[in-house]
Amino acid sequence: MILHPGIIALLTGALIEVALLIYSSYIGLVIIMRWNANSSTEEQLSLERKTYLVSTIMSFVLAFSILSTLLFIYTVDGMHRLFTGAMCATGSLNANPVGWYALYMKISIFFLASIWIAVNYIDQRTEDSPLVKKKFILLLCITPFLFSDIYLQFRYFLGLKPNIITSCCGSLFSKEGGGMAGGLSGLPTHPMEYIFFSSIFIYVFIACVSLFSSKGFIKYLTGLMAIVLFIISLASIISFISLYFYEIPTHHCPFDILQGHYNYIGYPLYISLFGGTVFGILTGVGEGLKKSRLLTIQINNLQRKWTITSIALITIFALICIYPMIFSSFTLEGY
């Protein structure tokens, strides 16, 4: 199953990424052990300069994680014919559930790499580079994720046995289907709609309050709520939002909305959701980094921008979700 062009591409990319990250981790380890901001030695200078390399590599990793998630979904989607019963990406992923873990891993890498880049940004803008050790410890924590990502992808593609009878969104994402995914689509639609819209409302409210409040806990709460909202939103996309786009009451697929058939609506939808979540989380993460006066000044500036961006993106996300509910003739009454 490995000799598929898409799989070769994904694995090539992943290998490159891991190689770059191993190198960065090595640099990271040296920096954690030998960094001394008060020293003017040539070694210190060379360490400082290596942080540029690492930050470039991390930007590469972030960009790559986005692209590879998309390519992964497309590859998996294109393979559904190989599995009896599979009709879209969901079906192919179910053919070997490791695929789901690979996808979760990619999403985690996206969030972690974004946080790293933000921490690096703050660090580089503060004169005494106060976050150096923290950011390289974070880097060392990201590396295992990349390893898992490549390992899970290998496991997934190697483990695919064509002709496995799998359940697809029709059956798996239907109320009869078991597992978490089945549970999600089985969630009663109306309560789910209430939960979704109220959590959006609560999030936007908390985030707005945090804009005007200087209390730390409300910023942490914003970050936390962003994560909660992210999970609720994914559940809602599977449970009812996707249905409005497909106008089919049984099609709960979170991937098909990325296709041209549905005007690529999935892209703005996910971009606004992921973006809004990242900036929300950053609001909380930033709060935890206010350890010195200089940092506090830096972060206060950024935090404001982050929170506003997050509010804007989540609002856009909500509008995209609401749009078909208002303007399409399709209703979910009775489902």
Binding site: I8, A9, I16, Y52, F60, Y74
Partner: peptide, 28 residues
Amino acid sequence: PYQIAVLLFLTVIPYMAATIVPSWKASI
């Protein structure tokens, strides 16, 4: 677009990755 994405992964990404370290060396 899928074919294009596969091609990008097989050509542009390796190229960009191969030039990261040399560019950094030049920039310091």
